[in-house]
Nucleic acid binder design. Structure first.
Length: 681
RNA sequence: GGGCCGGUAGCUCAGUCGGUUAGAGCAGGGCACUCAUAAUGCCUUGGUCGCGGGUUCAAGUCCUGCCCGGCCUACCA
């Protein structure tokens, strides 16, 4: 029976380019969609750009253009990136569309009618200069707990969490202005009222992986705990849709984003003459959302609640995947592992990444790791060494021989691979691509020895053995074709090349069951190049550079630091790392600090380097620091400085500080966590 | 602190309902081959299945305690 399946990936936010972490999801989804089509199901893949919110508004302003202009630009970039990676949508919409506005209205009136909307006044920081309310991340200030400076609005590096209104000396990152507290009315959805529905849904449907269902029931839906009201409005100015019955308020971006799934489907329906109800109101249609674990909460509580209230079908399955790590660590700008789709594309084939991700993806919510060496090995040994090489090693003869009229005896290889099709299909179906790839590679491993033992090279110059040669070619190319078919959801390009070589397009899974015989073969052309580790290194290097440039341009708040200090004390001549290494800087704790009666500028300090190791140091900081206030704090000292005999005693090092002297002396501080005795590198 | 997942060969992992001598790919070593993108084939080295208890005729597999790693979440399921 043909299934009717609607598939979505999460809507990428229009505030940045697609990177290889995003691609895990789109590739995962695209593979599933292609697989479904190959086995004959009706499958429509819908996505859109997520375009609203403060971040977009601010960025547009900074770039001096309209939001519409910005999001049109980003949408173009996103779609180009996806196309490069062979991620093919049936429709790619935008949350800033008429269709989405209409759907938002429909959802909203359903929520209103169901009595789920409530109003509350909340206090929030407001930037009087930028004339906008500030989300937590747009405020920085001094932590009220530890006193750390320049901390974000909701938490501090010391581990404390607080409300942005508690920050000491808060500053808006938008304008630098000091925010004021303003009260505004926000609209909330009372999710608690949907508790029993949600509990039932989680229990009765098998839409969620078991771990996710447990997590939701154990955490959000735990007994004695209320689901919090969901704040779904923002006061203007806000780039988004104004709420019809609450002028001056706009739907929060997370309200209209998932509705984009519905509105984008609606657009697709209108374009293609399809009935919307067939896709969102029909029990016989499956709805599959692919998302990352970070947005689990929105897609498993709010979204089902909204769909339920609006009378639309609930998701059949929410496929949740983990995050991408690179080299065992979180992707980061500084190490160059936050690689954009665009940069990747310059150095490696998209299909390689598709294959690598496929070998790593399972139905579990687990992070996956891209190890550079592993990536190179897998692509080169599996795809090039095993799969493509199978075609390559008989390809040259095939143009002359063509394929035999009947399929020759191959010792059961083709039959075996044909019957493996079901197990491979099952693995794709449940999202266990890792297993699917393993099964396919087993087939590839079995295929190559056939060519080896058949020794076609002994036949090629013997005119009497051309029929034999043709049989060998026929077997090898048919086994290769089976692999290409099974890999087609992952490697559409390879399937195309196989199709071109054999003159028959690969369109369906069942083609793997019947050998191709009696046809001619085109001239063989290389199908894949080996991946060079150096190219990946270049990719990483380039990612470092672009991000550095960006962060210099974008992230740096405007500081107007004077150039006087540098003028007063110009830069010294260059030194080598070895020169620097001679200076042994250590973290030290001030154990005692006292005035030296006879000295004008000096304090006498005892510095602890951990354990019993201490140093006596005379420091010229008397005018700037009270001895009592120094005791206990961590400083940085030059620990291997030659001791110097002073009038008041021996000074066994130096405390690091900046400033011209006198009262303007500033000791170097060390961040939380440093231990006395640690060397400063 | 709590919840979840994991710990099997140097690396990445498989191991179904507990059932013979624990497997694969890659990497390493040896040999062979030359059709192929220094590709491939054959052979081979390599494991106290995190640790300790328990259940059982039988435990990588089940139970339990502990250790380690990851993810999630923090006055806390």
């Amino acid at each position: 029976m043909t299934r009717r399946i609607l598939v979505t990936s999460a809507l990428p936010y229009a505030n940045g380019p697609i990177h290889i972490g995003h691609l895990v999801e789109y590739i995962q989804t695209d593979i599933w969609v292609r697989f479904q089509r190959m086995i004959g199901n009706r499958c429509v893949y819908i996505c859109a750009d997520d375009t609203h919110g403060t971040a977009i508004m601010i960025r547009a302003k900074k770039e001096g253009r309209s939001e519409e202009d910005l999001i049109a630009d980003m949408s173009g970039q996103h779609q180009r990136d996806f196309a490069d990676f062979h991620v093919e949508f049936d429709h790619y919409g935008s949350t800033n569309s008429d269709a989405n506005r209409q759907q938002c209205h429909a959802f909203w009136s359903a929520l209103r009618q169901a009595g789920l909307v409530t109003e509350k006044s909340i206090e929030q920081l407001y930037d009087p200069e930028a004339q906008t309310f500030l989300a937590d991340r747009f405020v920085r200030g001094t932590c009220p707990v530890s006193g750390h400076k320049n901390q974000p609005g909701d938490n501090c590096q010391c581990g404390a969490t607080y409300s942005p209104t508690d920050l000491i000396d808060p500053k808006s990152t938008l304008s630098g202005a000091t925010p004021v507290i303003r009260t505004a009315v926000h609209l909330f959805v009372q999710l608690e009222k949907l508790r029993s529905f949600l509990t039932d849904w989680i229990d009765s449907s098998d839409a969620l992986q078991k771990e996710t269902a447990n997590y939701l029931k154990g955490y959000f839906l735990a007994e004695g705990k209320e689901l919090k009201d969901w704040d779904i409005s923002r006061p203007g100015p806000y780039f988004g849709f104004e709420i019809p019955d609450s002028p001056g308020n706009y739907w929060y971006v997370w309200f209209d984003a998932p509705i984009g799934y519905v509105s984008s489907t609606k657009e697709w329906c209108d374009i293609n003459g399809e009935s919307f109800d067939d896709w969102w109101r029909s029990e016989s249609t499956e709805i599959h959302h692919f998302i990352g674990k970070d947005i689990t909460y929105f897609h498993t509580l709010f979204w089902p609640g909204m769909l339920h209230t609006a009378g639309l079908q609930l998701p059949t399955k929410v496929h949740i995947h983990g995050f991408l790590n690179v080299g065992g660590e979180k992707m980061s700008k500084s190490t160059g592992t936050l690689i954009s789709a665009e940069t990747y594309r310059k150095y490696a084939q998209p299909d390689y990444l598709r294959y690598f991700y496929a070998t790593k993806l399972t139905p579990r919510v687990e992070d996956l790791d891209l190890g550079i060496d592993e990536f190179v090995d897998k692509v080169n040994s599996d795809l090039v060494g095993k799969v493509v090489n199978l075609a390559s090693r008989v390809g040259k003869f095939a143009k002359n021989t063509g394929l035999s009229e009947t399929y020759p005896d191959d010792g059961g290889l083709f039959e075996n691979a044909a019957s493996a099709g079901d197990a491979i299909a099952e693995a794709y179906e449940v999202g266990d691509y890792s297993r699917a790839m393993r099964l396919i590679m087993e087939l590839a491993d079995a295929a190559n020895p056939f060519v080896e033992h058949a020794k076609p090279w002994e036949m090629k110059n013997d005119s009497d053995r051309q029929d034999e040669l043709r049989d060998v070619v026929t077997v090898a190319l048919n086994l290769f074709r089976q692999l290409a078919i099974y890999l087609a959801p992952v490697l559409p390009t390879l399937a195309e090349k196989c199709s071109a070589l054999l003159g028959e397009p690969i369109t369906s899974w069942d083609q793997s069951k019947q050998p191709l015989v009696g046809t001619s073969v085109e001239k063989f052309q290389r199908m894949m190049e080996r991946l060079q580790p150096e190219d990946l290194q270049k990719m990483i290097d380039e990612s470092k550079e672009t991000v550095d440039a960006e962060s210099a341009a974008d992230d740096r708040p405007t500081f107007n630091d004077s150039d006087q200090p540098l003028k007063d004390e110009p830069m010294s001549e260059e030194i080598t790392i070895d020169d620097f290494a001679k200076v042994d800087l250590r973290v030290a704790r001030v154990l005692t600090a006292e005035h030296v009666p006879e000295a004008n500028k000096l304090l006498k300090l005892t510095l602890g380097l951990g354990g019993d190791e201490t140093r006596q140091v005379f420091a010229g900081i008397k005018a700037a620091y009270e001895p009592e206030k120094l005791i206990g704090r961590l400083v940085v000292m030059v620990a291997n400085l030659q001791p110097r005999k002073m009038r008041f005693g021996l000074s066994e090092g130096m405390v690091c500080a900046s400033g011209p002297g006198g009262e303007d002396v500033f000791l170097l501080a060390v961040d939380e966590g440093a231990q006395p005795g640690q060397r400063v590198h």
